[in-house]
Design a protein around this nucleic acid. Structure first.
Lengths: 178, 178
DNA sequence: ATCCCATGCGTACGAGCGTACACATCGATG
DNA sequence: CATCGATGTGTACGCTCGTACGCATGGGAT
């Protein structure tokens, strides 16, 4: 009965949800676990998010900004003279290099969209955003293919435990660019 | 107390598990749901599979043969003179065309493997198998890239709801082949 | 023929879950 | 200042779950 009328309550719940998914996976996400992590009562999470899907969508939306921010921070895809394949390969390398919690989170939510229609639009947005960014430097068809290949490469790294090989990525990405 | 000494008990439980995952997703898999689907008592599933992970591994291993069987049935990748890109694009088209239960199942495995180390080897096997098959017709590096691109394309189709475009797939796959 | 134990069966327990709902508390509105 | 709605809080209900455990059974080893 202490922290009443918290203006950031909603945001804090979303942040907590991201931490929970990062720590325990999507399966560990529940109104209760989020409430505990956010240090708010159970009723508060159910008030702001009637269903778990709603909470997931909000969390996924926020988490998905991770890669986008990396792109901006790196200033990738900006210089029209640079090697697109090399830039993308480097970008993914940096993304995978640090704390992989964010990466795993993105893909977990991404793949969860397979079974949860509510997440589908968010996943589609993520695809589209990436393709759009790449399309600044290539034609749209190539951009979509590059996005698909990047996804595939990331998944292979995450799932098979194989090391990310930036050389290899740059090479095969370059092949897709006509 | 009727069906005692069922020699196929284990197999029937696995089959039931596959049906359950196909119908309700991995999240719907539980000892109880499988027991109900297989029409066996709860104790029987827990006896044959101490943990859910064990059951998942068995079920997914069996389910993963789906794509491989399709490859064999189609006789794909056999004729050394054929167009590899076209064959792969057609294969995926056929895979995605019919009942998508098997397809979703495969990708659900990916999702689960992200968080469950027990499933990682199974996912890795699937990746490796596909790459090996393709490597019959290309060098290993290209094969791995093709497998990644196929994954990415499938995911885009499954997640964004966009129609599978075999022409497009054939085109971009061909670009990867040197 | 006897015995052992892998296998099958039923039940019970405690934990965690989503949901619902009644009550408390402020901010804004008039 | 009075009121009302939005927001926050606490609790309780009914459900499903994994797990454990005791008993039953009969095939195969001896």
């Amino acid at each position: 009965m202490v922290r009443r009328y918290d203006p950031d309550r909603r945001r804090r719940i979303i942040d907590a949800a991201i931490r929970v998914v990062g720590a325990k996976g999507l399966g560990g996400l529940s109104h209760r676990s989020v409430a505990a992590e956010a240090d708010v009562p159970l009723g508060s999470t159910t008030y702001h998010f009637k269903t778990l899907d709603e909470l997931m969508v909000a969390a996924l939306r926020q988490a998905n900004e991770g890669f986008a921010k990396l792109v901006v921070a790196r200033g990738a895809l900006e210089d029209p003279g640079s090697d697109v394949a090399a830039e993308l390969a480097g970008l993914v390398g940096e993304w995978l290099a640090g704390d992989r919690t964010g990466v795993e989170l993105e893909y977990e939510l991404y793949l969860a969209a397979l079974r949860r229609p509510a997440l589908r639009p968010v996943a589609a947005e993520w695809c589209q955003d990436l393709a759009d960014r790449i399309a600044l430097r290539t034609d749209p068809v190539t951009a979509r293919a590059l996005a698909a290949l990047l996804d595939g490469i990331c998944l292979q790294v995450l799932l098979t435990g194989v090391e990310y090989d930036e050389e290899y990525a740059r090479d095969v990405l370059a092949r897709v660019i006509p």
